[in-house]
Design a protein around this nucleic acid. Structure first.
Lengths: 205, 205
DNA sequence: TTGAAAACTTAACACTGTTAAGTATATTTA
DNA sequence: TAAATATACTTAACAGTGTTAAGTTTTCAA
């Protein structure tokens, strides 16, 4: 039994190797310039070997995406320490902006690219880590409302609004659309100002 | 002179033909599934002929993008009739959401895809129609502040926040991320609720 | 030691964007 | 009007893509 377990472990190691090197390449060369052959060369296997471990390229993307969520989650650990819900929501937003700006390739996979989500859908699988983050968001909003810090409204509506704004900020920034609104060097600063503005505005007076 | 003019006109007609059929294909089959060869087949020319009219595929995308802005602009013509700035901003948002949901392939090119913007940048060209729309947005926000309908803040900050939210809503919806927050059949409704919420919230009491 | 199962590779298919070279078709010049 | 030139377009090819079927090597159990 231990022998079959060892083999299974070896298989998992190769799987991880593929994912690690794939993600490194995505970050280094940009998502669209990475081919199956390039990944294969990196790990010193034939290109077709990847297909023994993953159904297709999209499935590789999908799993890289999952590791992106782990990365993001780590950033949010310290969040629990903040007791004021509005303050917590604010910091969550700041983390979101920072994550997106510091890891544009991860962000691309997680929230912009079509492929990983398509895989997820026809795998019938869940968006485990993504769902988790959204639940956290909803809970904070709910908490803030319960404590009378926000004007009462449907939780989903407010959560969607907040998420959409931070996603909008990051994705427009990544795709260089925000330089059309303010000079490139002011983009990051103004993004944070916009987030500040939202939270100040939504806070019940 | 008229003969050289006629030839010029013919050239422009072929250019337009390429753009029209390209966009039709993008809408029909989805942006990523359209190849230069497919476009060429549609217009009954050899694939290489397209390269006599456009530098590369990205330039075709870029010009399709421009026609998307025209389409969007048309939707906003009636906006001038609304005198209340907040109401006008609201309707502008509604138009934005509708445009995105009704023309996802156009939206993709205009605001999500990397390629058209990259072309624009290394052409040194401007984002003419895009800039125009952003100017309109800034002016409305400025107007609302001047009339005391909004809490004073930097115009760019508020404009960025508003644009980011509507873009976030549309792009998350197009990429099927919003079904993770509410059931698919409620997405469109909740998007509008989020927009309503933002405008109600930002309106000075 | 043999036979089967697992892990991996080679070769190929049908695509992709793009370019260099060649061919008709018009237009201009002698 | 005939030859030379410029314009418009095509053929063939390159180097790349994701992916699959078939073949090979390695590993392990009987």
């Amino acid at each position: 039994m231990s022998i079959v377990a060892r083999k299974e472990k070896q298989k998992q190691e190769i799987r991880s190797l593929i994912l690690e090197e794939s993600m490194k390449l995505f970050v280094e060369e940009g998502f669209s310039k990475v081919s199956v052959r390039k990944i294969a060369e990196r790990i010193q296997y034939s290109p077709t070997t990847l297909y023994l471990y993953f159904k297709d390229k999209n499935e590789i993307l999908f799993h890289c995406c999952e590791s992106g969520f782990k990365k993001m989650l780590e950033q949010n650990i310290a969040l629990g320490l903040i007791s004021d819900p509005i303050e917590r929501l604010h910091q969550m937003g700041v983390n979101y902006l920072n994550f997106g700006l510091e890891n544009p390739e991860y962000y691309d996979l997680m929230f912009i690219q079509e492929a990983p989500m398509a895989t997820l859908i026809d795998m019938g699988a869940g968006w485990s880590s993504g769902d988790q983050a959204l639940e956290a968001l909803k809970m904070i909003v709910q908490d803030a409302m319960d404590k009378g810090l926000l004007v009462p409204a449907k939780v989903e509506t407010v959560a969607m609004a907040v998420w959409s704004m931070v996603h909008g900020l990051v994705s427009l920034a990544i795709r260089q659309r925000l330089d059309k609104l303010v000079p490139a060097e002011d983009v990051e600063k103004t993004m944070h100002e916009s987030l500040d503005w939202l939270l100040k505005t939504m806070k019940k007076v």
